[in-house]
Design a protein around this nucleic acid. Sequence first.
DNA 1: GTGAAAGCGCTAACAG
DNA 2: CTGTTAGCGCTTTCAC
Lengths: 344, 344
Amino acid sequence: MITAELTTPFTLEEIGRLANASRSTVSRVINGQSGVSGETRDRILQVIAQTGYQPNAAARSLAARRSHVLGLVIPLAVHFLFADPYFPRLIQGISQACNRHDYTLSLYLFQTADEERSIYPRVLRTGFVDGVILSSTQLDDPLIPQLVENQVPFVVVGRPSNAPKAHYVDVENSEGAFAAATHLVRLGYQRIATITGPLNAVAGMDRLEGYTRALQERGRELDPTLIVSGDFTEAGGYTAMCQLLPHQPDAVFAASDIMAAGALRAIREAGLTVPQDMALVGYDDMNPASLSDLPLTTVRQPIRQLGMQAVEMLIDVLRNGLTPPRRLILPTDLVIRSSCGAMQ
Amino acid sequence: MITAELTTPFTLEEIGRLANASRSTVSRVINGQSGVSGETRDRILQVIAQTGYQPNAAARSLAARRSHVLGLVIPLAVHFLFADPYFPRLIQGISQACNRHDYTLSLYLFQTADEERSIYPRVLRTGFVDGVILSSTQLDDPLIPQLVENQVPFVVVGRPSNAPKAHYVDVENSEGAFAAATHLVRLGYQRIATITGPLNAVAGMDRLEGYTRALQERGRELDPTLIVSGDFTEAGGYTAMCQLLPHQPDAVFAASDIMAAGALRAIREAGLTVPQDMALVGYDDMNPASLSDLPLTTVRQPIRQLGMQAVEMLIDVLRNGLTPPRRLILPTDLVIRSSCGAMQ
DNA sequence: GTGAAAGCGCTAACAG
DNA sequence: CTGTTAGCGCTTTCAC
């Protein structure tokens, strides 16, 4: 292995000299362009292999005007959100797809609005990223207009409420909730409650919509006392369930498994048993450890897929232009276990 | 607000022209260097504010030979590891510190050894990152020698077993386990078992060491049948507990809360109750939802702090050079709740 | 205190 | 098919 002086890595020029070719020809080989004779190419590739040469990223970005870096932006990355396994899985999917396509992933977590304001210009205006994946959790995300204004290509994970033309990937939130609630109706439960997600989040709204649609299609009256809003936390699920108990539901659809865990705690404290006294259905199919002794019926979302597809979509946009708007909705699955009482 | 032509952002040169100064002077102002008159500085700052100018990241890196990007490398980022809230918290801490210091974070998750081999040259040799934070989970991590060889400054999260001179941050794994086991001894339990972490991980080894040391210092014989190795998963904790039950322990120290959750499931299936029939202590103080109805005595680790300190340390190395080796061990806390039987 | 000029290492016309 | 050349937008000497 030919080794460069310890402190200075090789440059294109030097590789060229070693391979008896010009800098441009080496560049062509590295970028897989045609128009280089097989012989020359082989010679150059050999030198590259021997030297372990890797082109300088900064110089490359500067000259080519693209960085091969994708940014993942997660606003409001407050602690409790990260207790949920949603983001880890999403990040894994995104990372895997980036690896596959030779993109580097850079991660922007904003915990406060201040942080958001001060960091965002760096994301948008320095040309550091070629494009952005925005995991939007809130309704009317203020970052979307800024991305548009600065002409940064972006894909949203989760349907954005305020940007009809934005590219996005999402799961069938409404359909998943619909399936869950319908399942409870079919099992004969009479007082089916729901603990919703935060209603300032599109996913929260969509899942509530699925629940109400399921009940209405089956001719059930909606009882407002059986609809309590939660916040995707365990504590929120517990509190919500405490509010529901006096109204004597016989089944509960929680819009996330974490909230289902909280609900379960409340149910047990009230001396009731799932599913004998109360059916329970969740949403996410997250870590089974959280409900270690209760096999939870739940709606499974393909979160890693969601992440991978977001990357694929963004790369497509980068290659083929901003129009037309892309959208992709991934299906959800109702996973029936014993907590809904169907297995008895 | 003065606006540049839509497609081309401002350059230093243009800002200079607008502010009646040279490119170099503007550069000095932006980089906070002295030697610019207050008047000129003000004029330039005003133009920058008006234009919303942000320097081009690639050009900057190329000229300055530093990117202001830190890489976070997580090898073996397989699914089950991400079910644990450890990495999300670590990432949050790292991200927060990066935001504070105006560094950009780029994330490298490797799921397979192949991925590792193909992506690593990009991390190391393109000059894309100024330094690397390596979250080493395995004994003798093969990436460490490569980082050394390529002269990439790096900090390891978790004590590296094969690099005595490496900079690292860690928690008092052994001391935490020692405190947990000692607590069980003091409470009078006679047959104290442990479910260890993976013994090819430094943290797993260290926690086992703390357990054995605690028992030995209190004059207890070590019973090999009461030591079963797990893998930091719920399923692993369950299996390990099933192996322990025939040997009738009266207390169990699980080297992670996730494994404690699995152990709890096994204990309950055997018709036993915690803490009446069996004391249980965990490690991590992770998401309480996982053991929703059992307040778990556990060892709390300051994981976010760990991440933040890793960044601080790396920036220190970047600024002040590779020597001397830095190391920082953060304390752990024994959090006593009811699962150990101390509250009765 | 300020400006001119020389790169940083690469890509991408443009010649040949 | 190959090489020459002109930048990409910034930092950093070096003069003044």
